[in-house]
Design a binder for these strands. Sequence first.
DNA 1: GGAAAGTTTTCAATATTGGAAATATTTTCG
DNA 2: CGAAAATATTTCCAATATTGAAAACTTTCC
Lengths: 198, 198
Amino acid sequence: MTSELPLRERKKVATRAALSHAAWSSMLSDGLDSVSPESVAAAVGVSSRTFRNYFAGVEEAIVDELAQRYLTLADQVGDRPPGEPVWESLMQVLPAALPAIMGDRDDFAVLLQAVNDRPTMLAQNLIMFERGRQRLTEVIAARTGANPARDLTPRLYAGAATTALATSAELWARRATDLPLPDLIRTCLRRLSEGIGP
Amino acid sequence: MTSELPLRERKKVATRAALSHAAWSSMLSDGLDSVSPESVAAAVGVSSRTFRNYFAGVEEAIVDELAQRYLTLADQVGDRPPGEPVWESLMQVLPAALPAIMGDRDDFAVLLQAVNDRPTMLAQNLIMFERGRQRLTEVIAARTGANPARDLTPRLYAGAATTALATSAELWARRATDLPLPDLIRTCLRRLSEGIGP
DNA sequence: GGAAAGTTTTCAATATTGGAAATATTTTCG
DNA sequence: CGAAAATATTTCCAATATTGAAAACTTTCC
């Protein structure tokens, strides 16, 4: 039980995590403007070309850790007991997993601010969200036996869940409500599941 | 009735439209790789610096016309009779407006392919979508008297509508269904409005 | 007509992107 | 273990994209 991954793979993971973490904390302490590929690479002790081998830019590096966690959401849905209705799985997984994914509220608010200020940051964030949504669509299709390329249902489920997630995250970060995060997303999910129409 | 806009404004609009159109048709005929700010500017007969005064890159130029049309969707919802329930407005506006927005199906499929292949294109497309969603949120909040910064409802409506739109667009472009586009989005909207849950 | 305001162009400085070869590290296998 | 193969990293560099500033040009308004 020494290791699950070969050393080389572990090093790659470590390098990526170190770069992402350095970019993230540099943004928190000094602001996004003072984060550059060079500074991040220097902080970690690799060449700036290596930084580019991992990330297209600092925005991608900053968002990476969050993106990784977000992708695990879909996998957690996939790990629910077989036969459980999709919406029940979402109701179980999302409220429980969200606090860990979002981390500290003030830090997340800083990120959200950066995202809203910078188009490149917005793009990065949206791409990460979209990838998570696609993965969730595939997982749901696999669980229901639907064809992910043709059927509406998995896409509508995944779209609704993503909407609930994004809405909860934003209101929570802005402190627009006193509800704890799990309750907030439960509320969003419930309203979508019961039908948003008249 | 000579003109609604001053000459200068009309020229700007014309230049922007010409650049966007040149970028778009160049992508259709020669592929995205052969589209550059220089080639587009040359095709229109302006300097490449002028291209950059209008667009940050070719991706933005390509998507621009579609983005403009997409933004009008929210305005069309805002123009519905006061007092009409939000979901009814969406059901009226989206199916009717979508064919004009999406244009030719084969052309749209090419765009979708480019979007899926290229991260920068994906980013551009997602940004445009997100802007539309935000505008729709604001319009809905204005119509219902909700506070767009704090209330869940407008965001959930707009998110659901956007999900329906994106889902319809993708399946339609992929020819995954024989349903006409208006019927497709009506189906998506209906299923979301009736509740997606168990 | 001519001043004011706005747009486009030219040009230069800077940043970003991505390739290729040299170097270092890890893994595989005899 | 030790050599060979596979993979990562680094250095160097050229092509391209982006940005800023000021000059040249066009439109607007009086």
